[in-house]
Design a binder for these strands. Structure first.
Length: 355
DNA sequence: CAGCCGTGGGT
DNA sequence: TACCCAAGGCT
């Protein structure tokens, strides 16, 4: 057959058959589809998150909760703690809500893209990906990799995000009827390893002959993106309060509100930096406080300069409100998000407990 | 529709 | 170093 007459999908799938990445949640090309639970779990974890970061969490979740019904019956705090460090914690809240909806209908995921789309945490991308990868549906899967590859293939000059409708159209055009799941994963592998943001490896690309951006000589120029906003810096305070209870050292932890920054996660008490421009500076309880240094942390839309105060009184305050005394010995099991894990390391180094 | 929502790795 | 960005979803 004349190779020049092969479709984009045929070339890409041939390349995928030879070069597909081996991933814990993926079935090799040509083998039966993996458990929908594992496909769904991995896709949610992979939202805006790198493969390298997800691997460890995927292994932990599937070990702790081998099926969607197992996950559905897990306590909220255990799941949130297991997600700690992976970021975008609304995903974990939606993950549990979704697992419980699926468990309520017998532990079976719906198989159509439209039905999947109604589940919490499944947007246009994830619903299409699960339908195609787990159930073999012909769905049009568009993620950031596909946006980049398609923008270059067709030399789409319109900047993102305005170009999304056109990208979706073009992706629909080249998505095959059969093996749409492999096609989607092939596009992601291509975008991840070949058609990269900077210095794409066009010499290794199976689609280089049909790539308009390649022909233009400067494929890395695409996709054009709208300029992004500058990140402000906020300041805030967090509080480290220890007490010796039953012969063991404990620290006072709180549970953050169910929505907003780090929603639903265990945390150190703080002065409200998340809710406004800066923290209000107030202490949650009677001092005296000893400064223990600062933690710099960058979130998605602002940077935080957090000062840590250690309670220096002989005995802990009595008006602490809602929270729990957490044993220092098990601090790594508390499920603190990264900001507060950093603050805890600072406190322990300062008090000479450990590092 | 644009802002909110984490984190770590690459350059 | 500072910046870019990743298998997005929700409001």
């Amino acid at each position: 057959m004349d190779a020049s007459r092969e479709t984009t999908a045929e070339r890409l799938l041939d390349w995928y058959d030879a070069h597909a990445r081996t991933l814990p949640w993926r079935a090799p090309p040509g083998t039966p589809a993996p458990d929908p639970y594992r496909v769904w779990l991995s896709e949610v974890m992979l939202q805006q998150t790198t493969v390298a970061a997800v691997k460890e969490y995927f292994a932990k979740f599937t070990r702790l909760w081998p099926s969607v019904s197992d996950l559905a019956t897990a306590p909220d705090e255990e799941v949130m703690a297991a997600w700690a460090g992976l970021g975008y914690y609304a995903r974990a809240r939606n993950l549990l809500a979704c697992a419980r909806e699926v468990a309520a209908r017998g532990g079976t995921f719906p198989e159509t893209e439209a039905e999947l789309r109604t589940l919490p945490g499944l947007g246009p991308y994830t619903a299409a990906a699960v339908a195609a990868i787990a159930f073999g549906a012909r769905a049009v899967v568009v993620d950031a990799n596909v946006e980049r590859v398609v923008s270059r293939l067709f030399a789409i000059e319109t900047p993102l995000p305005a170009s999304r409708p056109e990208i979706r159209e073009r992706t629909d055009d080249i998505t095959p009827q059969a093996r749409a799941g492999d096609f989607a994963q092939a596009m992601m592998d291509l975008g991840s390893g070949i058609c990269t943001v900077r210095e794409p490896k066009c010499l290794l690309c199976p689609l280089s002959e049909m790539c308009a951006a390649r022909a233009s000589g400067d494929p890395a120029r695409l996709p054009v993106k709208a300029p992004k906003k500058a990140k402000p810096t906020r300041t805030g305070r967090a509080f480290w309060i220890e007490a010796r209870i039953a012969g063991e050292d404990h620290v006072w932890l709180v549970r953050r509100a169910g929505k907003g920054m780090l929603g639903g996660m265990r945390a150190l008490p703080d002065d409200g930096w998340a809710a406004r421009q800066d923290g209000h500076g107030e202490d949650l309880a009677q001092g005296p406080w000893e400064p223990a240094g600062r933690v710099s942390h960058v979130f998605s839309h602002f940077a935080l300069d957090l000062r840590l105060a250690i309670h220096a009184g002989a005995s802990p305050p009595e008006d602490l409100g809602e929270g729990e005394w957490w044993p220092l010995e098990k601090l790594d099991e508390a499920g603190l998000p990264t900001l507060f894990a950093k603050a805890a390391r600072l406190a322990l180094a300062h008090t000479g407990e450990d590092a």
